[in-house]
Design a protein around this nucleic acid. Structure first.
Lengths: 150, 150
DNA sequence: TACAATTAAATCGTACACGATTAATTAAAT
DNA sequence: ATTTAATTAATCGTGTACGATTTAATTGTA
């Protein structure tokens, strides 16, 4: 096995390691969230709204790096399930603000405690956690920088 | 902002950092691969087959952590575009082996050079690269361990 | 004022991703 | 040998994801 093939090996590819980690997290969160009737991306929406309720679709999209092609139908599903409510702005009728519904406030603690408990069973050291966050931040900056150039 | 809300902040969540990194990689690879007429997940399939041609659908699924619900239609698309060919095993007619087509061998170098060039422009230090790989491996092991317990 | 450019959402088409079910084949057990 | 269990793919339904286009509302400017 020469060095070129070695570089090409799936196991050596950072993209794949991240792809795998992401899908593992998705599965973990999906399991935990299933009893509550929300999906992992929907949970990310709730996280954003718990931080700041009433964000517009656009702002939510910026926060989560998602376009309207993803968000619009997702919000619609969350609306049907009484997690959020959409409200057209009166001052600018293009804008749609998304507000948490009582259910989302009521379930907040239970959901987050379930998540915290599940994450806890993984025994991830605080040190590793922080190191990973720091390195992913660096990576993100480099990938973003490249995007702007292109 | 108290510590509970702090923990709940999107920016503090490892899952989100990885979710972001993954989608950034997807976008980067998508851009590079688009001229060749393949998607990022399809490229991962090619990577696996370049390493070992003739894998069965099941083996490919294990390698990439994908089920048949994802792979079957994806392989079908790759077959239509002449990247791979499916062959039913004669000894065990349940098994379907997937073989690279000439196109996939012909384009291999060009594709990988394009990817390498794009990654290169990100200026990711070898040190960071390796550190991230190592930590993601540790994380994967912990997440996998948890899966088995559940 | 009028009208062009910009902005915000919604819509559309394609492609993953996954759990659950089904269908066909092989292996195992009595 | 027959039945049962296990294995492998395919199929189905739901839910992201994303680029491109469309629609509606607002802003900028001639």
């Amino acid at each position: 096995m020469n060095s070129v093939n070695d570089f090409l090996s799936l196991d050596k590819q950072l993209c794949f390691a991240i792809y795998e980690a992401s899908s593992q997290f998705t599965k973990l969160y999906t399991n935990v969230l299933h009893p509550f009737g929300i999906t992992y991306p929907q949970y990310l929406v709730l996280l954003a709204l718990w931080e700041k309720d009433g964000l517009s679709a656009k702002e939510l999209g910026n926060r989560l790096n998602l376009g309207t092609g993803t968000l619009t139908p997702m919000i619609k599903r969350m609306e049907v399930n009484n997690w959020v409510k959409k409200e057209r702005s009166t001052t600018d009728e293009r804008r749609v603000s998304i507000f948490l519904q009582p259910k989302a406030l009521r379930e907040k603690d239970a959901i987050n405690q379930s998540i915290a408990k599940a994450i806890d069973t993984c025994n991830i050291e605080l040190k590793e956690y922080e190191a990973l966050m720091k390195q992913l931040k660096m990576l993100r900056e480099k990938l973003e920088l490249r995007h702007e150039k292109a």
